[in-house]
Design a protein around this nucleic acid. Structure first.
Length: 604
DNA sequence: TCTATATCACCC
DNA sequence: AAACGGGTGATATAGA
């Protein structure tokens, strides 16, 4: 800490409307060494082109949940500090895996260290005041500034208590990521808002249409709700025995439906309907007035250190077909760039298994594994041995999650004995990896913790899940790699729209797109080499140029289903409004009883 | 009618 | 007890 001449404890109050960048209300900054304090309301901040505190190489900014403070910097057009220490990140990694009585927020950290905390009711009141917006009386301004200062005071208490626990270079690396997170949260993902509005306008009617035709034959829906009681009646009247859960309720998993539909084909359409409706989730997608999907990434929220944005608000958390809403602005392109077989590569590098590394570097680890295991000839290709490759791929993924033979067998539709053979081949082929993996579990059981290369730590806790421990070093180090790549890319001035666990979405003007993609791929390779001590992972890019929209092959059918029905609606509306123009050209939607059944997706 | 719980489905 | 890692969230039903 001696390296810093100034240490600024900083807190902003702001509101963050859904999909928008933060609206700053006020700022309190206190210099830890001199106790100098700055309190400013937003009208005094707007004129500043940089923060009223030092942000150079010799200064440190300390905050709790610094992505918020950095987001305020960006909203104000201010540069970010060179060095950020985020006590939230540090508290998370110190206590990761423990159950905390008061959570991992500022109050939780204060409580954990036995420090005085303001009560959470007051916090809520003040937060509501910040969110309210509009005009503030001088009393309200004073109250909000006082509250803001109380959080800064809390930071001042927390810092000396936490400092002895910190590994500063690594802490600063996490702080660095909070800056990157703020940049990504600020950039957001470009959305086709016209299509979004069309979908929202017809959302309920779309579901009516989908349900309408199919449910005629079953009568198990009430409105948009599947009713178990009605389904039970239907089963009784058709003399079909249905699997039950331990609780005695019907087992309504899609897998069960799938299996039952094999025996009773009349169930097929109902299953398709249930699958389709389950993908109709759009509710809270957070899109700002400028058409960008912005939401809290919730950095370091997951036990593995991953980001954990809300699935409802974040377009990469919804059903894949809705990614069709992602569309670059005029003149721009976007690219989704992901590391190829990231976890396999991490396992190969960190375990030091030479055969696994060789398989990774071959470019097709799954096929390479099959060849190394002697299951296919050395000259086998993805085409010539498709089925075998699929099984070895499933086996690799199974191993990464600690899957057993029974589950793998179910997954690949093979007898358990075949799944056992595959798993045994993995153990025999990658012995070095298995020794490393076993050692990680043993270590965690003995010493109660594991950590990533940059010190993100998890406590095993009592009765830890050995499959979690086995997976942690791959997932946790994958998260490190992603964070580092996001830092490097945002610092290079690349517009990173979002991180997606093993991928990042970038945006650039069309004339620079190819170059930016190359640069990003280089950065991702570099980030992998830094995390994996020289081992470089490959990456693949999906490129989307205006006026195209993002499309994920897994969601194409559903996208077409929905947009086609949407067209029917809109044409029928058009027909009623402009009868002259449309007469004879269209049938009203209620006559198109084939629509729902025609467009429903097929069983996979 | 509201809330809690169980179950299920989605994402990487 | 189960045995697929990390998550969030919607929905149906049971219970207050």
């Amino acid at each position: 800490m001696e390296q810093f001449k100034e240490i600024w404890l900083v807190d902003f109050e702001f509101s963050a409307p859904s999909g928008a960048v933060p609206e700053v209300r006020c700022l309190v900054a206190k210099e830890y060494l001199s106790n100098k304090c700055i309190r400013l309301w937003v009208d005094e901040l707007g004129g500043l082109s940089a923060p009223p505190y030092a942000i150079d190489e010799q200064s440190l900014l300390v905050a709790y949940y610094a992505s918020a403070e950095m987001g305020c910097h960006l909203a104000l057009g201010w540069p970010c500090p060179v060095h950020v220490l985020d006590l939230f990140c540090e508290f998370r990694t110190m206590t990761n895996g423990l159950t905390l009585p008061c959570g991992a927020g500022l109050l939780g950290a204060l409580t954990y260290f036995g420090l005085d905390a303001i009560d959470s009711a007051e916090k809520t009141t003040m937060r509501d005041l910040a969110i309210r917006g509009g005009d503030y009386s001088s009393e309200e301004k004073l109250a909000l500034l006082d509250y803001c200062e109380s959080d800064v005071t809390a930071l001042a208490q927390l810092l000396p208590v936490m400092l002895p626990h910190l590994d500063l270079p690594r802490s600063l690396l996490r702080g660095r990521y909070m800056k990157a997170a703020a940049h990504m949260e600020h950039a957001g993902i470009p959305i086709d808002v016209v299509m979004l509005e069309r979908l929202r306008a017809s959302w309920s009617a779309l579901q009516d249409t989908l349900i309408g035709k199919i449910d005629q034959d079953y009568g198990v829906y009430e409105g948009h709700s599947f009713k178990t009681a009605r389904f039970t009646e239907w089963l009784v009247s058709h003399a079909i025995a249905w699997p039950l859960l331990a609780s005695g309720r019907l087992d309504l998993k899609d897998d069960t439906f799938k299996a039952m539909a094999q025996s009773y084909p009349s169930l097929g359409p109902l299953r398709e309907l249930r699958v389709t409706l389950s993908q109709m989730r759009l509710a809270e997608l957070a899109v700002g007035a400028d058409g960008r999907n912005r939401t809290l990434l919730s950095a370091f929220r997951a036990r593995t250190g991953r980001n954990q944005p809300s699935n409802a608000r974040f377009v990469f958390g919804t059903a894949v077909w809705l990614r069709g809403l992602i569309k670059p602005r005029d003149g721009y392109g976007i690219a989704y760039i992901d590391w190829s077989q990231q976890e396999f590569g991490i396992a190969a590098a960190l375990s030091g298994d030479p055969l696994m590394q060789e398989a990774y570097l071959s470019g097709d680890p799954y096929l390479a594994f099959a060849i190394q295991a002697g299951a296919v000839p050395a000259n086998a290709t993805k085409k010539s041995h498709k089925a075998e490759r699929e099984q070895f791929k499933a086996c690799v993924l199974a191993v990464q999650y600690g899957m057993g033979a029974e589950s793998l067998a179910l997954r690949i539709g093979q007898p358990v004995i075949q799944a056992n053979v595959l798993l045994r081949l993995h153990q025999d082929t990658y012995q070095v990896f298995w020794r490393w993996s076993d050692a990680a579990v043993d270590y965690a059981m003995l010493h109660n913790k594991l950590w990533t290369v940059f010190g993100w730590t998890v406590q095993a806790g009592r009765d830890p899940n050995p499959r979690f421990l086995r997976n942690f070093l791959m997932q946790g180090n994958g998260a490190e790699m992603l964070r580092l790549a996001c830092c490097m890319a945002t610092e290079a001035g690349i517009t990173v729209c979002a991180p997606v666990h093993d991928a990042i979405l970038i945006e650039a003007p069309l004339e620079q797109l190819d170059q930016v993609i190359e640069q990003t791929k280089m950065i991702m390779a570099e980030a992998s080499a830094i995390v994996l001590d020289g081992f470089r992972l490959n990456s693949d890019a999906d490129v989307i140029c205006y006026p195209d929209r993002y499309s994920d092959e897994r969601g194409v059918k559903m996208w077409e289903t929905v947009t086609d029905i949407l067209h029917q609606f809109e044409q029928s509306t058009c027909a009623s409004v402009h009868t002259d123009l449309c007469v004879g050209a269209l049938k009203p939607v209620h006559q198109r009883t084939d629509v729902a059944s025609y467009y429903l997706i097929e069983n996979s």
